[in-house]
């Protein structure tokens, strides 16, 4: 018989897991790009990879402190955004999509190739970079602590607290930015680029600033993402960007809390679904293998993306008027 309690509590754990926070932050970056400015960035996985590798390589190869490593990651993503933006921000939206997706793949391939194995660890990736971050942990207790299904060790709680604090600060920052004149120009660009240009605003520069800011959020998300796991280049494939788009569209593209709610919902549902399928296969309810059960969830994500975009493009929290991509 299926242990429903186990399935539900495993799903509940995802509600506040660092992975959920990382996806929420990356999706918030995309909300700035896509939801507020109308930029089609399909290279968010590349920004996350730069954060992850920038952090890990700074610590492992150069022995930087934690704050130095964070700065290196952010610097790398600013440069990456400039490289992406200079050729494409003057062009039509779909060019940016193709260039960003290509650039993210270039980043992933450069981290995967054997040529730089001494620094990047090639396909095996990197690990052992967590000591510096753990040394900052003010929590000290043995074993696990927590309430309900959320039982974690001191190190895990530290990661959870820091990651959700970053997400909260980013949300607050974005919220105040979007209420400011700067944010109104971004929304103006999304609605009608030429009108904003006619008002004497430098559209190109605003788009670039938006690309950089959202990219930095993606980079921070990449750093949070590697706290509960190792840095593996295969994680930063194009599907990662598509998953983040699914989260953004689920929550609402032009909203602040949409990405957070979307990410929580996405991971809880996905975990529940995987848990349920895995158990159902175990007790013989479904005539498929465990591996096939794992693939079912990708199929589900794909179908969910299609259905949301067709039937509720504004997402759960969004307002249909605030959508540049629905014409």
């Amino acid at each position: 018989m299926i242990d429903w309690g186990q399935v539900f509590s495993n799903a509940a754990v995802e509600l506040i897991s660092p992975t959920t926070a990382a996806y929420a932050l990356a999706a918030l970056g995309l909300a700035i790009h896509f939801g507020y400015t109308g930029l089609l960035n399909f290279g968010q996985a590349g920004f996350m990879a730069l954060g992850a590798y920038g952090y890990a390589i700074s610590i492992l190869t150069f022995g930087f402190p934690v704050w130095g490593a964070v700065l290196v990651g952010i610097g790398a993503s600013v440069i990456f955004a400039l490289i992406l933006g200079v050729p494409t921000l003057r062009l039509r939206a779909d060019y940016l999509a193709i260039v960003t997706i290509a650039a993210a793949e270039i980043v992933r391939l450069l981290f995967t190739t054997n040529t730089f194995v001494a620094v990047t660890g090639s396909a095996n990736g990197l690990s052992e970079y967590k000591d510096g971050f753990r040394a900052l942990n003010p929590l000290h207790f043995e074993g696990t602590a927590g309430f309900g299904p959320w039982q974690h060790s001191a190190d895990d709680w530290w990661v959870i607290i820091v990651s959700w604090t970053v997400v909260a600060l980013a949300c607050l920052f974005t919220w105040s930015l979007m209420r400011s004149p700067w944010g109104r120009v971004l929304k103006g660009i999304r609605e009608d680029e030429d009108a904003v240009r006619a008002l004497g605003k430098n559209v190109y520069s605003y788009k670039m600033q938006s690309l950089i800011l959202g990219g930095v959020f993606g980079t921070l998300a990449g750093m949070i993402f590697i706290m509960p796991r190792a840095v593996i280049p295969a994680h930063y494939a194009t599907s990662l960007t598509f998953f983040i788009y699914a989260i953004l569209l689920l929550g609402g593209a032009a909203t602040i809390l949409g990405p957070v709610v979307g990410s929580m919902l996405f991971w809880v549902l996905l975990s529940f679904f995987s848990g349920f399928v895995a158990r159902a296969v175990e007790v013989g309810w479904l005539p498929i293998s465990q591996v096939q059960g794992g693939q079912l969830r990708f199929i589900l994500v794909g179908v969910a993306i299609m259905l949301i975009v067709i039937f509720r493009p504004q997402g759960l929290l969004g307002n249909k008027k605030e959508l540049a991509f629905v014409k």
Binding site: L40, A93, D94, A97, S239, F242, Y245, A246, L249, Q295, L296, F298, I299, V301, G302, V303, A304, I305, M306, V309, I310, P313, F325, V326, K327
Partner: peptide
Amino acid sequence: VGVIQLMIVSIGLALAMRY
């Protein structure tokens, strides 16, 4: 449906078909 929406639909379709 707008072209960008169509493009995202095609991404969802690609994911579903591939898996």
